[in-house]
Design a protein around this nucleic acid. Sequence first.
DNA 1: CATCATAGTTAGCCAAGGCTAAACTATTTG
DNA 2: CAAATAGTTTAGCCTTGGCTAACTATGATG
Lengths: 161, 161
Amino acid sequence: MSNDPHFSQRPSKTSLQSGDALPPIEQHARQYEAVRSAHETELIEDYVELIGDLLLHREEARAADIASRMGVSQATVSKMIRRLNELGLVTNKPYRSLFLTQQGQAMADASRQRHHIVLHFLRALGVSDTTARIDAEGMEHHVSDETLAIMQRYTETQENR
Amino acid sequence: MSNDPHFSQRPSKTSLQSGDALPPIEQHARQYEAVRSAHETELIEDYVELIGDLLLHREEARAADIASRMGVSQATVSKMIRRLNELGLVTNKPYRSLFLTQQGQAMADASRQRHHIVLHFLRALGVSDTTARIDAEGMEHHVSDETLAIMQRYTETQENR
DNA sequence: CATCATAGTTAGCCAAGGCTAAACTATTTG
DNA sequence: CAAATAGTTTAGCCTTGGCTAACTATGATG
């Protein structure tokens, strides 16, 4: 029991502190808040992007296709479609294909472009195709415009070597 | 009504399809599954990493500090601590500081290292400090070991120029 | 044109991760 | 050493995004 760290008393406010490499509290909190807020839009963007891709390559976006490509049940897709509809991103009629609203289309385009830049950047860096695809899918939503621009420039210079 | 896209009939199975740039269904689904599973561990890792940092720099990790740095209520932290405990990542006694288990320490170390590599890579690429911090926080959990290794090599070559 | 397989929807469940308000404990201070 | 203050926990609520099971609509086909 004597070496149980929990046994030690709470140090007083005036105890000396070791070197501080932590960011200031405010900034630290803002970083995590940014991640949380990215999370909220992430899934939405993935669905919208996929719907856009299906419309582009398959002429239609059916719930069943979305479900199998997302690796998720049809019920989940059905529920998500209702949400996308409430958000004004898609239009749907029961038992018919989905379509993107103007706003949804804009989101799909932006998302696809970001995805594309990140994917090509990773490949230009030398990452294998399979890994690049997986990483791009996850990273895509967390890359700022600033970083995106730099990635794009890097990819271009690599391609013209 | 006649130009309502929903009005069109479901195309037959044998209709011609435009050029197919979509990945095969199985692979596509696996990509999204990878992202979903990364999500599950992401928050856990962020908490554990932060606790590790607090222990390192402040000698103790109090719920209040975690709450203010995560930008979250104390109640949320309290609940999360219970979860981390159930997962065998931290030890805690009511109203006392937290400590990491061996497993938790390993996770904190791995997480910090990944974070460090991504952050330095972004800076080496030319991303500003503030942006690099935010992006690193989000990207960290979606970067595979393969990509991580490449990032590290890149950063080193840039530093020795 | 009746039937049936396929596709879509609904209801109801669960866990995670937020929140506020209220209760409780520990530490500091008058 | 009692009271005040600061820190922690608990209870209970909400939303999101999964799931299964049961039901309904569509469209292809014998």
